[in-house]
Design a protein around this nucleic acid. Structure first.
Lengths: 228, 228
DNA sequence: TGCTGATCTTGACTTTTATCAATCAGGAAG
DNA sequence: CTTCCTGATTGATAAAAGTCAAGATCAGCA
């Protein structure tokens, strides 16, 4: 009964602890879809028919209002999205587009809600995942409200540094204009912000970031475990 | 076994559907505490020993970083806080202070985690609550990133109008300086923003708001079910 | 190789927002 | 009814961020 197509996600935290029969029930009627880059898969305001999981590639959640657009977050392999809307069966709050060619697993929302009721391990995992996303969003909001755009950029660069294995030189994972949107600023200002960080130990060449003076950058950014 | 002190919260969604014995197990070792106004009950970075519920009064969640402070949200009767941190047993992300004299129910985090495992109705209710808070925070972030401060104020005034029963004249529920902080602006700018909304049909006298031209205000604010 | 379109950068300028300082208003206590 | 304190408002100024326009750079592709 277990479909090999879905085994790749069996080990991610949301599904790792659930009984095999629950996993089978969950993936019944699920499917995998390939999307080209820059394709809008979901538009905000829609009804959540499927829980989505990024199997490979990269997805941006974004939102628009009154001719303005902002990047909410970027998701990579094994990330889920549309979970809260699926659970509550309410309107989706953010649109989703691929940034690269991506494979997306889609699980019928009805399956999620029914297996949630019968498998306590899955219920627990959902609570963990929701709590994690909720806390990440609170941190994001604190970042936006408590820091200037220059401070946000400095902390972003430090976080990427950690994520990419503490190397001092690394590539930005997303386009600068999307980074600007994520950080709540314009592309023009992001460009200037990179220049303004030069005295604090940041060198930029295209997509390549080099941290030339970690101590100074950290002193300026003041990273905080309750935000970053 | 049921303690009458806690019956006041029995009907709120988080506890309404759970078995009585679960509720008793949950409230065992819980207690009610009275706080004077303007008292910090919880400081961010602490460990979540208790799930908190506002029985009466009013609580502000706020956060500080580098000598700056921002209001995250204001909670009234029957609201819970510290839920996500309790579930994950991780550091609390926002501080909490009373704005008025308040009665707070405190449930040991250990009880929440253990009853969560044994009572599926409670587990379901927690998921509902977490999803609700998560979605509210996403909306909050969209509000901050997609709108100017004037637009945020206009939409806030419309939302209060609805909350207070669609009356055209009502009292602001919180101090203006806290409203300013919640909306991501300074008190000085909030004052100016109120003046700037005058042509759009808003009159202010102290704490009293009067919407003098609803159509114009709505046209300016462009309220959106995916944000407000 | 060179064309093409998108992204990125830079400069000039405008708008928005914050800061600082002074004044005003309103409630609590004597 | 004063006095005092806190919060609200106003004006002047500074800083931050956005807008517009012009080039520069880069990647994809014929």
């Amino acid at each position: 009964m277990s479909t090999p197509r879905f085994e790749s996600i069996r080990d991610i935290p949301l599904f790792a602890d659930m009984a095999q029969e629950s996993f089978d029930a969950l993936t019944r009627g699920s499917y995998v879809q390939n999307f080209p880059p820059n394709m809008v898969m979901i538009s905000e305001g829609e009804t959540p028919d499927f829980l989505h999981i990024v199997q490979s590639g990269c997805v941006e959640l974004f939102s628009t209002w009154s001719n303005r657009e902002t990047s909410v977050t970027t998701l990579y392999e094994n990330s889920t999205f549309i979970l809260a809307a699926t659970i509550k069966d309410q309107l989706i709050l953010t649109s989703a587009r691929t940034l690269q060619k991506s494979r997306i697993i889609m699980i019928p929302s009805e399956n999620v809600r029914s297996v949630f009721k019968t498998d306590p391990e899955f219920a627990m995992a959902i609570v963990e995942e929701l709590s994690r996303c909720y806390r990440a969003t609170i941190k994001n909001m604190k970042n936006l409200k408590l820091r200037t755009s220059l401070e946000r950029l400095a902390n972003y660069l430090l976080k990427q540094h950690r994520r990419q294995g503490d190397v001092l030189e690394y590539q930005l994972p997303i386009e600068k204009r999307r980074l600007a949107s994520y950080l709540g600023m314009t592309p023009e200002n992001l460009s200037r912000a990179f220049n303004n960080l030069k005295p604090y130990g940041v060198a930029v060449d295209g997509q390549t970031i080099t941290i030339t003076d970690m101590a100074t950058l950290v002193a300026f950014a003041k990273p905080d475990i309750l935000i970053d």
